[in-house]
């Protein structure tokens, strides 16, 4: 267990549609006594847009954030957003294995007037990995004030937390490591907080996030299937750890009812919100009121938040 402060890279989604994730992550860290220092002058990770147009430019954008972490004296940068996490890991991989990426990052860094990031200088962690490492299940259990006991949760990880496998060399290393085929870190943490995790067969299945604008109907059908499957598994709540997935689930839950006439009642909450409430934080403090999915009645009935 280590509780040294880490660099915090929220990324753009957490300042917009995923603000509740931003808020709950910071409040959770505070409640656990873990230090987060936001990266100074961070930039877009390159997400999908830049990556689609010029992948090397995306590598540079993510590398710049890693370079800022290094310059600020951090060995570890933590990113809660799956897209940001994925892109930082991808940049690390590209800079380790691809000479052209190194050259492009060298050239653009020089042009931008900062030192080029060198692979291996900073470790990127997802908030799930960070919590597992810094606090762990036992540490969390010891701090729980308001158990999630009786709350049935389907843990939904989305696609970018584990894919592609080769950019996550630390995963699939046996006991204690994360699995790319059946991820479990979120399950572990929520179970430590008392939640009852249901067997959810679609925990890494596509939410249609990338097609929300180009093909909304496919996205709605994909999300509807995620929601109905969670309900069939007996879940009260779908716990999320990606702002894009979370927004997609919430928005298409509404759209499925409007367009397809299919109503689902499963609630959608960030896992950081659930953990925060388990630690005794109020629903408001972890931003439940910022979610589209209104889970207040359920939480109240369970004595949470």
């Amino acid at each position: 267990m280590t509780n040294r402060p880490v660099a915090y890279y929220p990324g753009c989604a957490l300042e917009g549609t995923g603000h509740a994730y931003h808020r709950s992550t910071k409040e959770l860290a505070n409640a656990l006594g873990l230090g987060l220092v936001e990266l100074e002058n961070w930039n877009c990770c390159g997400a999908m847009e830049v990556k689609n147009i010029d992948p090397k430019l995306q590598t540079y954008l993510s590398a710049r954030n890693l370079a800022i972490s290094e310059k600020m004296g951090f060995e570890t940068v933590m990113a809660p957003c799956n897209g940001c996490y994925h892109n930082l890991k991808k940049a690390e991989y590209d800079l380790t294995h691809d000479k052209t990426s190194q050259e492009v990052v060298e050239r653009l860094s020089k042009k931008a007037g900062h030192a080029a990031y060198r692979a291996g200088s900073v470790r990127t962690l997802h908030v799930l990995e960070w919590l597992k490492e810094a606090i762990g299940e036992e540490g969390l259990k010891a701090r729980v004030k308001n158990s999630l006991k009786g709350l049935k949760v389907a843990n939904y990880y989305g696609c970018m937390y584990t894919r592609p496998r080769h950019i996550f060399p630390e995963k699939d290393k046996g006991p204690g490591s994360e699995s790319t085929s059946k991820p479990h870190f979120m399950d572990d943490l929520l179970a430590a907080a008392g939640a009852e995790n249901v067997e959810y067969p679609l925990k890494t299945a596509c939410c249609g996030g990338a097609h929300t604008l180009s093909d909304s109907d496919t996205s709605t059908k994909l999300v509807l299937n995620l929601l109905t499957t969670a309900e069939a598994c007996g879940a009260d709540v779908i716990a999320t750890e990606c702002p894009t997935c979370h927004s997609g689930l919430e928005m298409h839950q509404v759209r499925a009812e409007k367009v397809l006439g299919r109503k689902t009642t499963v609630k959608i909450l960030y896992f950081t919100q659930l953990l925060g409430m388990a630690l005794g934080l109020s629903a408001r403090k972890v931003g439940v009121h910022e979610n589209i999915s209104d889970s207040r009645a359920l939480l109240k009935a369970r004595g949470l938040g």
């Binding site: 299945a205 596509c206 994909l222 299937n225 499957t229």
Partner: peptide, 9 residues
């Protein structure tokens, strides 16, 4: 449901 997801995807 899993198969349906595969079909949709």
């Amino acid at each position: 449901m899993v198969a349906l997801h595969l079909a949709l995807f």
